[in-house]
Design a protein around this nucleic acid. Structure first.
Length: 900
DNA sequence: TCACTCACG
DNA sequence: ACGTACGTGAGTGAG
């Protein structure tokens, strides 16, 4: 299944030239199987192919091969390609393997007797571009420069630069830039210059520069030839002398564009691949490492996996009073549990429960029709920690069950969390997606006996299929947990899952259920205040430009700023020029136009008003906001918060902080307390890098940024100026993001040169950091993933991308993931420890929020001191690092006051 | 639905 | 030559 809106894109590969390049680029001795089969060309070719499939997402693909050396060109010119070494057997033997690989990917490969791969590609390009309505874009991956003549606005050549890893993107502009002639004139130039690899000599002493100049001056090779007499000097002489060669070259390097290949574009559509055959071939070629993973990632997106047979399920709808007996019979078996009903943060109801057992039986209980005895039996079983249960995404069901008055214990697996740890970059962890991806079956009950079926006992009723779909889901969760257990194990994530993520579900459910109290009157007052400001600024802005526009429309703004007011153009975005705050600020510095000030201020206050409106809408009848925390969204391991997002409440400006005044202590409690880790990410950096100076800076307990600044600038700590400190602070923060000199210069408003110098000095001082950061990327490239202190992995296949932007982006992710992810690990552990300690100590105070490095608590009367001590202890002791974990604590009536 | 902008750590 | 710091969520405009 292809995504419906994917642009149609045809990828054509010159199999021969690419494999040939790979053959010489990769050392044979590193690529051969136990049986002595060489695989370097297969490896290199496949690697290029999957990278381009991944980076370019073509919808149609074909690979062209030369059939033999016997082509029409050889017939015309017996010396054609004569200087080429005899194709070594080590190479030829790999071509059939490449073709088998293509078969398993369901990619067509084509040959044509008497013609070369180039001619096949030229023909397909011509076919593809002829049909304007299809709108196919064409990409040609080839190591043969003759194909440059095929470049147009809609067809691009990807040309391998060195070896097999870097691709040059040859658009018409790039061809013109590199050779000085447009693509259709490239073969004219090549005819003059000659092509050594094809044994086609050109005009001696004439290079691409002169050839391009002639072609441009006389408007094409034909005219150059016609007016050859006019060319003066030695080069002109040489040209006239070798005119025959030039004409022959031009004839031979013209690609044939009208072969009868007998294929239509529709035949080249990428379709389902043969997973079993591909795995078998990968095994046979002994491709075990990173390429295997990359292939499976790229060629096997979840939706393309063929659906295998379903499962038989022997299902029962339990009649009233039958529940206890059924659950008794289950004993201590692990049960897949699916909860029907609805839920939100701290609310919900249960309408049905489905249980599935590994042996194939399943049962459904209509909760609304249950007897009292059933209720008791269910309650007992749910609360029994010795009855192991598997759920998918347990936090929602936990809320619903709690609302029903049921406690859930004995959750041994959450398949959403397991799948997240195995591959944290996924967009969704839907049960249906995972079932398809890991179990290769659809998450629906099946009426087709060949595909497995759902059987009901005689007495069973299933109105609308509710019971059967619930049982199918319970079964899917159970089967998935078994399947994912291996994957989790392989990814080294078992400890993290069992000791951190799984128990955290309960803590998060608690936070959501508790919520945080809001002073709605205060919020409403602010809303009115900022509303006034918005109107005032809008009117002032309209007055300046003499008309009313929608200030919230970047498009209308661009018209005003760049067309009407003729301001200098800002940085480009996809659709125009940016109007973000940085750009407006810089425009103001240049033009001092008052419209900009009103616009900026309007943005600021409308934003605050929006934030307030959003918050007011989410206040529940209990006067509190109950956010939802998501545990499987951030690829680094962080939590996220939605409806509303309480992790991005303004704090950086005075006005913004007024919103924090609205988050207040609730009835029955004394105050709010915040506790946050200071410089958690730099401390992790110190721990991971083992940089002695950095560790020392933290152990000293003095101002960290000033301390590091004094080291970099080599001055006494007292002599560190605010400017020096600010620069090093920006540097310290940027480190964990994979900073660039450019980024740092932007941040600080200094010249890139100065930023570069600053970085050099910094890394000179903290050599351990430099070595660590370099090592992280190398290691990740080798293994395919990064790892946090607690072994949380993030896979970054783009580290080997041929696309420079993607590759560098992946490198920055690789730098950041262990830092941000380790910090996430730490605070999760801190939450678990704190939660346990609160219960242990029997305190009434409770945890309300987590904001990445900060925890917010509601403090019960008389518990302030003991709570602070407890929280400090649990947070600081969350991990044993080579540097101390510093926790700072504040208390107050509101979140604002509780800041420190 | 995507692009832009901007809030947080 | 080209784009430029990591990770999120939400509201709005526009196609």
């Amino acid at each position: 299944m292809t995504e419906p809106n994917r642009p149609p894109r045809l990828l054509l590969l010159d199999g021969h030239s690419l494999a040939y390049r790979a053959f010489f680029a990769l050392p044979v001795e590193n690529f051969s199987t136990a049986t002595g089969q060489n695989t370097n060309a297969v490896y290199g070719f496949t690697s290029m192919l999957v990278n381009v499939l991944r980076d370019e997402q073509p919808t149609h693909v074909a690979v062209a091969f030369d059939l033999s050396r016997q082509t029409f060109r050889l017939e015309e010119y017996s010396e054609y390609k004569a200087k080429r070494n005899k194709t070594p057997g080590e190479f030829s033997s790999q071509l059939p393997l490449i073709q088998r690989m293509l078969d398993t990917f369901s990619i067509k490969y084509l040959t044509a007797p008497g013609y070369e791969a180039d001619d096949i590609i030229a023909t397909l390009v011509t076919q593809a571009l002829a049909d304007e309505t299809a709108g196919l874009e064409v990409l040609i991956l080839t190591g043969d420069r003759d194909s440059l003549q095929l470049v147009t606005e809609r067809s691009t050549v990807l040309y391998p630069m060195r070896g097999v890893s870097d691709l040059a993107r040859m658009t018409p502009a790039a061809v013109e830039e590199k050779y000085g002639v447009p693509p259709h004139r490239y073969p004219e130039l090549a005819a003059i210059v000659g092509e050594t690899s094809d044994n086609l000599p050109g005009v001696p002493g004439v290079g691409a520069g002169f050839a391009a100049r002639w072609i441009n001056t006389y408007d094409g090779l034909d005219n150059v030839i016609a007016q050859a007499d006019k060319i003066t000097g030695k080069k002109g002489e040489a040209f006239r002398e070798h005119l025959g060669d030039v004409i022959r070259n031009r004839r031979l390097n013209a690609l044939v564009r009208d072969l009868d290949l007998g294929v239509a574009m529709d035949d080249l559509v990428l379709t389902e691949w043969d997973r079993a055959a591909a795995l078998e071939l990968l095994d046979e070629l002994e491709f075990r490492g990173e390429l295997r993973t990359r292939i499976l990632d790229v060629v096997a997106p979840a939706e393309d996996i063929p659906v295998e047979a379903g499962v038989d399920l022997d299902g029962t709808t339990l009649a009233p009073d039958a529940v206890a007996g059924w659950l008794d019979a289950v004993g201590d078996q692990t049960v897949g549990l699916s909860v029907r009903g609805s839920w939100g943060s701290g609310t919900g109801r249960v309408s049905g429960l489905a249980f599935a057992l590994a042996e194939g039986t399943a049962a459904y209980i209509d909760v609304e029709a249950m007897s009292q005895a059933d209720d008791a039996a269910v309650a007992g079983w749910l609360a029994d920690a010795a009855k192991p249960k598997v759920l998918h995404d347990a936090k929602g069901p936990l809320h619903a069950l709690a609302a029903q008055g049921w406690t859930l214990a004995g959750v041994v697996e959450d398949t959403a969390l397991a799948a997240y740890l195995v591959a944290p970059d996924q967009r969704s962890y839907d049960l249906a997606d995972l079932t398809l991806r890991y179990l290769h079956r659809e998450l629906t009950q099946n009426d087709d006996p060949d595909q497995g079926e759902l059987l009901f006992d005689e007495g069973g009723t299933d109105q609308g299929g509710v019971a059967s779909s619930a049982m199918v889901q319970a079964r899917a969760a159970l089967d998935l947990s078994a399947e994912l257990a291996d994957e989790v194990e392989k990814a080294g994530g078992r400890g993290l899952l069992t000791d951190v993520e799984l128990p955290l579900v309960r803590v998060l459910a608690g936070l959501e259920q508790t919520g945080i109290a809001v002073d709605t009157e205060h919020l409403e007052g602010l809303e009115a205040h900022f509303g006034d400001e918005v109107r005032k600024e809008a009117e002032a802005a309209y007055a300046v430009i003499g008309k009313e526009i929608n200030l919230g429309s970047p498009k209308q703004l661009q018209v005003v700023l760049f067309d009407e007011l003729n301001m200098p153009k800002t940085k480009r975005t996809k659709t125009g020029y940016t109007t973000d705050a940085d750009a407006l600020q810089s425009l103001f510095v240049q033009t001092e136009h008052p419209f900009l000030l009103h616009l900026l201020r309007h943005r600021e206050v409308i934003r605050l008003r929006q934030t307030i409106e959003g918050l007011l809408k989410t206040v529940q009848p209990d006067g509190r906001i109950h956010t939802t925390f998501h545990q499987t969204i951030a690829a680094t391991g962080r939590l996220s918060s939605t409806e509303p997002n309480l992790q991005n409440i303004p704090v950086r400006t005075e006005e913004g902080r007024r919103i924090r005044e609205s988050f207040v202590v609730g009835a029955g409690y004394d105050s709010l307390m915040t506790a946050d880790y200071s410089q958690i990410e730099m401390r992790i950096m110190a721990h991971l890098s083992e940089d002695e100076l950095l560790i020392e800076a933290f152990r000293s307990g003095r101002d960290f940024h000033a301390e590091t600044a004094s080291r970099v600038f080599d001055v006494e700590p007292d002599a560190v100026t605010p400017e020096m400190r600010a620069k090093i602070k920006a540097m310290n923060y940027g480190l964990a993001y994979g900073l660039s000199a450019f980024g740092l210069s932007q941040q600080l408003g200094i010249e890139p040169g100065e930023a570069r110098g600053l970085m050099d000095d910094y890394f000179e001082t903290f050599g351990g950091i430099r070595d660590y950061l370099g090592g992280v990327v190398d290691e990740a490239r080798r293994t395919g993933f990064t790892e946090t202190i607690m072994g949380r992995r993030r896979y970054l296949p783009d580290l080997t991308s041929d696309n420079r932007m993607r590759r560098e982006s992946a490198e920055r992710m690789a730098l950041n993931a262990p830092i941000q992810g380790s910090a996430a690990d730490l605070i999760k552990v801190a939450m678990l420890r704190t939660d346990a300690a609160l219960r242990e100590a029997g305190l009434t105070s409770r945890m309300l929020l987590q904001v990445h490095d900060e925890l917010v608590f509601e403090v019960a009367a008389g518990e302030a001191d003991v709570l602070e001590k407890l929280v400090r202890e649990q947070m600081a002791g969350a991990a044993e690092l080579t540097v101390p974990l510093d926790v700072s604590v504040g208390t107050g009536r509101s979140w604002h006051e509780a800041a420190h």
